[in-house]
Amino acid sequence: MHSRLTVIACPNRLPRIEFGGGLAARRTGPDTVHLVSAAATPLGGDVIEVRLIVESGARLMLRSAAATVVLPGAATLTSHADWQIEVAGELDIDLEPTIVAADARHACLTALHLHDGGSARLRERVQVGRSGERQGFWSGTLRVDRNHRPLLRHRLDLGAGSLSDDVLYAPRATVSEFRYPAICSTASADPRWTVLALAGGGTLSTRQDDLLTP
């Protein structure tokens, strides 16, 4: 299945939404949009394309109604998600966790383009495996540019076959949060987090565990 979603946030009006396939969205506030599933997705072989545009003077908060469960398909194990984001206003993304079930494999690419006056917070939570499952795999790539100049290039693989998967330590959960501009958060005082201050401004905070916890 090929799912597409476009959300355009403009100042002084409700966000414009277009979608198709297994992913839908609903306005739940003047500047808030919730993602909802119209069908079981992503399954192996599925592709999800999301495009977000936040114009200057606009604000968009993106949330989800429930966790995303990634399942293997009949012909292939791998699904893909591609996020293309343009921000000249204020963007806040904080979705419910992604759960990679059974032996599914999921690859997510997020490309964020920040313009003058743009600010962003992107929070992502991933759990590989349900109870007793450890064979799934997730790969997340985050690319951030500001005014067409590279700000961040980051990739994390998690689960079976990843570089972090060894006999000594094999985390199955991760939480990451990108902020621009940099704002102090609880992560900076928590030793379980790794906080990276970016040379061009902003921060990337990451944490790995066996299970997602508060």
Rank of each mutant, 00 (worst) to 15 (best):
residue 61 M to E: 15
residue 46 D to G: 05
residue 66 A to S: 11
residue 37 S to C: 11
residue 69 V to H: 07
residue 56 S to D: 13
residue 52 L to S: 10
residue 81 A to R: 14
residue 69 V to T: 03
residue 48 I to F: 15
residue 73 G to T: 05
residue 49 E to R: 10
residue 68 T to N: 04
residue 70 V to T: 03
residue 38 A to P: 03
residue 61 M to N: 12
residue 81 A to E: 11
residue 40 A to F: 05
residue 81 A to S: 13
residue 51 R to M: 06
residue 72 P to M: 12
residue 46 D to E: 08
residue 63 R to F: 00
residue 53 I to T: 14
residue 55 E to I: 04
residue 45 G to H: 08
residue 52 L to E: 09
residue 41 T to E: 14
residue 84 Q to K: 12
residue 65 A to S: 15
residue 37 S to V: 02
residue 62 L to H: 04
residue 65 A to Q: 12
residue 49 E to V: 10
residue 46 D to L: 06
residue 74 A to D: 13
residue 83 W to C: 11
residue 82 D to W: 07
residue 38 A to L: 14
residue 42 P to D: 10
residue 60 L to W: 06
residue 51 R to P: 07
residue 83 W to P: 06
residue 34 H to N: 12
residue 79 S to D: 09
residue 59 R to A: 10
residue 52 L to C: 10
residue 50 V to T: 09
residue 35 L to E: 03
residue 54 V to K: 03
residue 33 V to P: 08
residue 64 S to P: 05
residue 62 L to I: 06
residue 37 S to N: 11
residue 42 P to H: 01
residue 70 V to E: 05
residue 75 A to I: 09
residue 34 H to K: 10
residue 33 V to F: 00
residue 78 T to N: 10
residue 49 E to L: 10
residue 37 S to K: 04
residue 52 L to I: 14
residue 38 A to N: 09
residue 62 L to N: 03
residue 58 A to F: 01
residue 78 T to Y: 02
residue 85 I to Q: 06
residue 44 G to A: 08
residue 85 I to R: 13
